[in-house]
Simulated scan of single mutants.
Amino acid sequence: MNLKFLRVLIVIFLLTLNFSCSSQENEETKETFEKVLIDIGDSLTAGAGGDGNSMSKVASKLLGKEWIVKNMGVGGENTLTIGARHGGIPMYVKESIIIPKDGSKVEIPSGLYSSYNHKKVLPLLQGSAGINPCKIDTIQCKLTRNQNKYYINRITPFSSDYKTKENTTLHTSLSDQKKGILTIFIGQNGGYSSPSELLNQIDLFVQHKGDDNIIIITSHGNSTTEIVKLVREKYKSKYIDLKEYMTTKAIYDAIEFGLLPNNGDYPTVKDLERINTNQTPKTLLKDGIHFNSIGYELLGRIRYKKGKELGYW
């Protein structure tokens, strides 16, 4: 065989091999990057009362190390404040402010407002999940709260101060995180005036996500028949009616899964009384609304089952 022709074949082979490996690496990187699960919500998402357990922790255990699970639950937040963190319902600074060039903090005089209805939102009450670093226009900043006042400062000092316009949107870091699967678990703390308004706000979360890789959960605490009807009609198989589950099957699943002893002690008389009045059994609760470790384990498992049904994992 001609030596020159042989060299050409070798070069072509090496280039093809390199391209193939590069493409495979890119696909592997993409697959790994998209194996992200973000749980957004309030204290029920955060896992308050669970002694370290939460829906997100159960997911991490069941999904394994290939998945990145982010618990973005913060206690005490209503739908508008959660929406402000998530980015589906952005918050804004009403007045023009000057952000100092040296990175020192400046007060946001009147606080932060929701783009949904121009009412105040109150982030950073019990946590900062997904807020910082934030941006005003192109300026990367940090938002802080002290004695009911909000402050912002530039992260990297610059050569000059920056003056914002009135009604400038404050973008959170979470607002840019749209890959993977999003669980939206909001509504227990209000922020809406009607079931249709709650559905409309959920729609804004989904629109911001940019795809339908979602799971919607409504609370076992204050979910109504109308809320369930509207959300189920809109989101169908992507919806979990947590109240229905917790007041019917949950405690029996706890026994089946070995989370409670199968010795006749459960459900208790009190549990059955609450089930008969459409309430979550006390055995699964830490207090009036928050689950204990067993309750969060059950929540995590039914969410995992739903994701499995939807082909997410």
Rank of each mutant, 00 (worst) to 15 (best):
M1P: 02
K4V: 07
I12N: 09
L14M: 09
T16I: 14
L17R: 02
F19T: 14
C21Y: 08
S23Q: 11
Q24C: 02
E27Q: 13
K30F: 11
T32D: 04
T32N: 12
K35N: 10
D42F: 05
D42P: 10
T45D: 02
A46H: 05
D51Y: 13
G52R: 03
N53R: 11
K57H: 07
N78T: 03
R85D: 04
R85P: 06
H86K: 06
G87L: 12
G88Y: 03
I89S: 01
M91C: 07
Y92G: 01
V93Q: 05
S96M: 05
S104V: 05
K105H: 06
K105M: 05
S114A: 04
S114T: 14
K120Q: 15
L125K: 15
L125E: 15
S128H: 08
I131Q: 04
L143Q: 06
R145V: 10
Q147R: 06
N148F: 11
Y151F: 15
R154Q: 07
I155G: 01
F158C: 00
D161M: 09
K163P: 00
K165D: 10
T168S: 13
T169E: 05
S173C: 07
G180Y: 07
T183G: 07
I184M: 03
F185V: 01
I186V: 15
G190W: 13
Y192M: 01
P195G: 03
E197H: 06
Q201I: 07
Q201P: 01
L204N: 12
F205T: 02
H208K: 07
K209N: 05
D211T: 12
I214P: 11
S223D: 14
T225I: 12
K229M: 00
V231Y: 09
R232K: 15
R232P: 00
R232Q: 15
E233A: 14
K238W: 07
I240Y: 09
E244D: 13
Y245T: 09
K249Y: 04
A250P: 14
A254K: 12
G258C: 12
T268N: 15
V269G: 10
D271I: 08
N276I: 01
N278E: 07
Q279V: 04
T280H: 08
P281N: 04
K282G: 11
L284Y: 10
H290N: 09
S293V: 09
I294P: 12
G295P: 05
G295N: 06
L299P: 08
R303P: 00
Y304E: 03
K308W: 04
E309C: 10
Y312K: 01
